[in-house]
Design a protein around this nucleic acid. Structure first.
Length: 321
DNA sequence: AATAGTGGCAACCGCGCGGGT
DNA sequence: TACCCGCGCGGTTGCCACTAT
């Protein structure tokens, strides 16, 4: 049995909003607010509209400080960067662009920005050969970047790595997230992180959990949750409590020298270990040829090359995904 | 001038989540 | 604990304007 409709569809108007309806809605909300109940709002405001429709109209069009029109290069950069790192979390991306709505950004991405990027660097054959969406390609890029050449693993300064290897690490521009980014989302921060990791490291439809065990960050299901003392959940919550620190260390391989075990996003699991010289090495290489991978990544590097300011690699409070 | 094709945007739909009971 | 309800999100659809033929 399906869910009950949110409103009486027969008595509800659909389609484009008239200026009169806009005025009614705007006037009502400015006077009384939403009252925390969108479902009841249209009736009170004298509108024959579904509450959800009112909410959408208000959020995407009528509410103050909405920015319409062309996106700036800086906005392009942010969108591209965030999309690469967190995928189609339009609301989160929108939270980083004051005045822009998630719908706006989504439309802009789908109709313009994606094509812009594709047109610049992607050859049709490359797209076809990987039979994935642009999104999955970016995710692939992201996951591959997380398994970047082991030569940098020994370094605590990943920024240096980015600076030297921008064409390869294109999507791994460090991103600065304001705390409001997470708090403004209806989803809690840990959940966002969890989802981000799923998208970031899993190039196929697999679901993974992560946990911290003995200072080792591990991804996986029950197998990785085999703590002998059964304190799996505690470890996870510890991880969540320290999410900023953890994320920094996670990618940076920095303070704490956390080991990671992660899905390689293509062919299964890949773990890493430190060799005798303190260099982090992949335990199992990817089956994808390195050259092919580099080609893929450089082919999508337009995201950085034409949008990103080279001088902005210095980030302060940053999280690496 | 008429028609078909394409792009862009606004709006809708269905689902998952979380709070309340 | 289970259920209901509203909210918010992401994907999709439909309409309109513009362009090409």
């Amino acid at each position: 049995m399906g869910r009950a409709p949110c409103c009486d569809k027969a008595n509800v108007k659909k389609g484009p909003w008239s200026p009169e309806e806009d005025a009614k809605l705007k006037e009502y909300i400015e006077k009384y607010g939403t009252g925390g109940n969108w479902i009841a709002l249209p009736q009170k405001a004298g509108l024959r509209r579904c509450g959800k429709s009112c909410r959408l109209r208000w959020l995407n069009y009528l509410r103050p400080n909405i920015k319409h029109g062309e996106f700036s290069d800086e906005e392009d950069r942010i969108i591209c960067n965030l999309f690469t790192n967190i995928g189609s979390r339009w609301s989160i991306i929108a939270a980083q662009l004051p005045g822009r709505t998630d719908n706006d950004i989504k439309n802009y991405w789908n109709t313009k920005l994606k094509k812009k990027l594709m047109g610049l660097n992607m050859l049709p054959s490359q797209i076809k050969s990987h039979s994935g969406t642009f999104s999955s390609l970016l995710h692939l890029q992201a996951s591959l970047s997380s398994s970047s050449p082991s030569s940098y693993r020994g370094s605590n300064n990943s920024t240096a790595y980015y600076a030297q290897n921008r064409s390869f690490s294109s999507a791994l521009e460090p991103i600065s997230f304001s705390p409001s980014l997470l708090s403004r989302s209806s989803t809690n921060a840990a959940s966002v992180l969890h989802q981000v990791h799923q998208e970031r490291f899993v190039g196929r439809a697999m679901q993974h959990n992560y946990q911290v065990k003995d200072n080792i960050l591990m991804f996986g299901g029950e197998a990785s949750c085999s703590s002998s003392d059964g304190s799996c959940s505690n470890q996870i919550s510890q991880c969540r409590d320290r999410e900023y620190e953890y994320n920094y260390n996670f990618f940076n391989g920095g303070e704490g020298h956390q080991k990671i075990m992660l899905p390689d996003g293509l062919n299964g699991w890949r773990s890493e270990k430190q060799n005798g010289n303190g260099i982090w090495e992949d335990q199992a290489p990817l089956d994808y040829g390195l050259e092919e991978i580099k080609q893929l990544i450089s082919s999508t590097s337009s995201c950085n090359n034409f949008l990103f300011d080279e001088n902005k690699t210095e980030e302060k409070a940053m999280m690496y995904y």
